[in-house]
Design a protein around this nucleic acid. Sequence first.
DNA 1: GATAGTTGGTCAATGATTTGACTATTTCAC
DNA 2: GTGAAATAGTCAAATCATTGACCAACTATC
Lengths: 179, 179
Amino acid sequence: MADDEVDPAPELDFWSFIELAGRRLREHGFGDGLATQVLLTLNRASDIVTYDLEAAVHRPRGRSWSAFRLLFVTWLAGPLEAKKAAELTGMSRAAVSALSKPLVAEGLLRRTPDERDRRAVLLSLTERGRREMAATFEAQRRRELEWTSVLTETEQRILVMLLDKLITDRHQFDVRGRR
Amino acid sequence: MADDEVDPAPELDFWSFIELAGRRLREHGFGDGLATQVLLTLNRASDIVTYDLEAAVHRPRGRSWSAFRLLFVTWLAGPLEAKKAAELTGMSRAAVSALSKPLVAEGLLRRTPDERDRRAVLLSLTERGRREMAATFEAQRRRELEWTSVLTETEQRILVMLLDKLITDRHQFDVRGRR
DNA sequence: GATAGTTGGTCAATGATTTGACTATTTCAC
DNA sequence: GTGAAATAGTCAAATCATTGACCAACTATC
């Protein structure tokens, strides 16, 4: 039966796949596939950029992407509870706990008991941590600018606005996610 | 009270953090932080949506997000080499190998040796696999529509266009990423 | 103010994915 | 053709993050 042999599509990369997918979904009666295309492209773009930043900026400096995120929010949001750091970075409290251990040992991060709530721990950067973050962020920023420079400033603002809109209005339907 | 330290920012969530970050980066002399904001928002949006789709659609059906992605590309791109499936889904060949094992055992996926290249294996869906994917994708599609319905069709097309632009032109600088 | 329930952080176990080594095959150069 | 280099898939080891259990501390209610 000739249902199985779809033509091998000689040069099938991610982009032609998206097109192919749209066509097939339409054949299967699944509408125009625009929503699928939006989310597929969103995920792919995020993965590619993140992978690049990690590989180009952070791994060479001996840091994981997650460690960078933790240092980054601590750098900018001042002394904050581990719980808050977990929320802002989008990781679990356990992950923050595990990640912070070596960073404290290396002298980048400080953990001070919270006066007001003795269960909690406040995270802040040491002077050394601040210096490293300033340097690391400068490198990351350069890379970010390379990525975003293919868009005009207006396009960048529109992009942010559309992404904001996409995830800010999500309370319309059941939200059980962790953030 | 004189909070000589950084004020604890009572209601600090991801969105106010983005604003705070912009302000702080400006203070530190790092420009307007627009590039940072673009990429931060991109990652966050992708994470939130993906997490939701996995939790709402796939985990309840006993599938991981990765397994779904593998089945999805196999469904739409017909019989394809494991290598190609890895490229399209953005995972490693080893991951495809590992993921496909239980799917074959469950009778959703078929692995047939490639006639032309006896090193390679062709992945395709069984009849049962096709039925499951049709049902699963219908559920995923409904969820996708809920997400994207806060944007007009034009906005969705612009979003895709901007994301395409962001990652298509990346060959300007060193690309060593895996895709 | 005692007690029940909640919350913050940590630990152990689990699951998932990557990298690198290895085998089998193919491709290329001569 | 023959041998060297490259490639597809798999396996083992290592990495990393999540969940759930747990303890300590806080909060609310009686």
